[in-house]
Amino acid sequence: MDKATQTELEAAAFRRLVSHLRARKDVQNIDLMILAGFCRNCLADWYAQAAAEKGISIPKDEAREFIYGEPFAEWKRKYQPEATPEQLAAFEAAQKKGHG
């Protein structure tokens, strides 16, 4: 496979991941961090970092809006409840195991 095709496939997979996360508003960032060691905010940070490597500056809020499909503050207000004590405990345990 040539490099251009590989890049196109990687970009398509990334777009599908972003689309999937936008659709699954029921999946909370803390749950993603507990299970996978990353969340939507991490993905936005990686997006901005990749841009920075190409000399493109993307502000944090703009990168998050790209990932969330709307301003993060609005998404958070609409879809993100306070973390439960159980989620916080699981998050802390995952951090101790080296996730996140």
Rank of each mutant, 00 (worst) to 15 (best):
M1E: 01
D2K: 05
D2V: 05
K3Q: 10
K3I: 15
A4P: 00
A4D: 11
Q6A: 13
Q6L: 14
T7Q: 14
E8I: 00
L9G: 01
L9F: 12
E10D: 04
A11D: 05
A11T: 07
A12N: 07
A13W: 06
L17N: 03
L17D: 05
L17G: 03
S19P: 00
H20W: 11
L21F: 11
R22C: 03
A23W: 03
R24C: 11
V27M: 05
N29C: 12
L35I: 10
L35E: 13
G37V: 08
F38H: 05
F38Q: 03
C39G: 15
C39M: 04
N41V: 15
L43E: 06
A44H: 13
D45P: 02
W46F: 12
W46E: 09
Q49W: 00
G55C: 08
S57W: 08
P59I: 02
P59C: 01
K60T: 13
D61Y: 05
E62W: 10
A63G: 08
A63W: 01
E65K: 15
E65T: 13
F66W: 02
Y68C: 07
Y68H: 11
Y68S: 09
E70M: 15
P71Q: 09
P71Y: 04
A73D: 15
W75L: 02
W75E: 04
R77H: 10
Y79N: 13
Q80D: 06
P85W: 02
Q87F: 01
A89I: 07
A89T: 14
A90T: 04
E92N: 13
Q95P: 00
K96T: 14
K97W: 02
G98W: 10
H99A: 09
G100R: 15
